[in-house]
């Protein structure tokens, strides 16, 4: 992808002014409708989380008439709910740390050097990002049971490396390619060792790339359901598995379920806010 300049504005170039005004109006309507379509379901989840179950089930209201935070209180005080969040956060953090630690040097190698089988290696890594987790669920279950790691956080963290490590390598490689090679060479001439150069000079230069990679590792590990559910029973059960479990029960506590949903969206929404300026770039690389 070449540079995404902000001055290409086809809208400003259309000929006559009445025509232009009409066109702008049309696109505003399209965007409003589209964003409405995107936000309505999320709004609905949010209002449900703020309603009492009586209101949800007995009257149909567009916004909470009987405003309550009880659903959130339930989640934050009931251990069977909040341990799910703690478990999720533990293995997601472990996974992000492992993925980045191994992906950083590898991405550097792919972005700077040609070596035996580099293309094939890169392709092989990518196939793991593309592989359906359903294929791996059963062997993972057997593998981690046999080494005694079943139902531990590290098992889920390692399993998620399957798709997160390739993803991190892919994203980081794209960012590292943007750093001119002269910087490396100058540093080596100045007597920096590889390790010191990497930590002191190179890492700060690709800080935004590391941020984006960390974000996507975090996200994909956070959203994954199949492997984390297969590999855990009690001690490391993640929030996503707890949420699907309640759906099996006869009487579903919709308010609490909605509140749990809202709470799992929060980390993502927070991170979007922090990386909002990189989002366009991340997508422009096509590496998501």
């Amino acid at each position: 992808m070449s540079d995404a300049t902000t001055n290409a504005m086809p809208g400003s170039l259309t000929a006559s002014s009445p025509k232009k005004r009409l066109k702008v109006k049309g696109s505003v309507i399209v965007m409003t409708l589209y964003l409405l379509f995107l936000l309505l379901p999320i709004y609905w989840l949010l209002t449900m989380s703020l309603k009492t179950n009586t209101e949800i089930l007995n009257e149909f209201t567009l916004w909470p008439h009987d405003f309550t935070l009880a659903n959130y209180a339930t989640i934050l005080t009931d251990p069977s709910w909040y341990t799910g969040y703690i478990n999720s956060i533990i293995y997601v953090t472990m996974n992000t740390a492992i993925s980045l630690a191994v992906a950083l040097p590898a991405a550097y190698a792919f972005s700077r050097y040609r070596f035996m089988g580099d293309n094939h290696l890169f392709f092989w890594l990518l196939t793991n990002r593309m592989a359906p987790p359903a294929v791996f669920a059963l062997p993972f279950f057997q593998l981690y049971s046999s080494v005694g790691l079943f139902d531990t956080h590290i098992a889920v963290a390692l399993a998620h490396c399957l798709f997160n490590v390739p993803l991190a390598v892919w994203i980081l490689e794209g960012f590292m390619r943007g750093v001119p090679k002269e910087i490396d060479e100058t540093a080596y001439i100045d007597g920096y060792s590889f390790g010191r150069f990497f930590v002191k000079i190179f890492t700060p230069l690709i800080a935004s790339g590391i941020g984006v990679a960390a974000f996507f590792c975090f996200m994909f590990s956070w959203v994954e359901l199949l492997l984390s559910r297969t590999l855990t029973t009690v001690d490391a059960k993640p929030i996503s598995a707890i949420m699907t479990r309640t759906q099996g029960a006869a009487g579903i506590d919709w308010g609490v379920l909605a509140a749990a949903g809202v709470l799992t969206i929060v980390p993502g929404a927070l991170v979007i806010y922090f990386v909002r300026n990189y989002i366009a770039k991340g997508f422009a690389l096509g590496r998501v």
């Binding site: 965007m31 964003l35 995107l38 936000l39 309505l40 379901p41 999320i42 609905w44 989840l45 449900m48 996200m219 956070w222 959203v223 994954e224 359901l225 996503s240 949420m243 699907t244 759906q247 919709w254 379920l257 909605a258 949903g261 799992t264 969206i265 993502g268 929404a269 991170v271 979007i272 806010y273 909002r276 989002i279 366009a280 998501v288």
Partner: peptide, 23 residues
């Protein structure tokens, strides 16, 4: 628009399911 449009992409997949299950 960019931020709003990224929002659904970053919602945990099971929550996407939950949202539409309720909706």
């Amino acid at each position: 628009c960019l931020v709003m449009m990224s929002l659904p992409l970053l919602i945990p997949w099971n929550v996407v399911g939950t949202i539409w299950q309720i909706f």
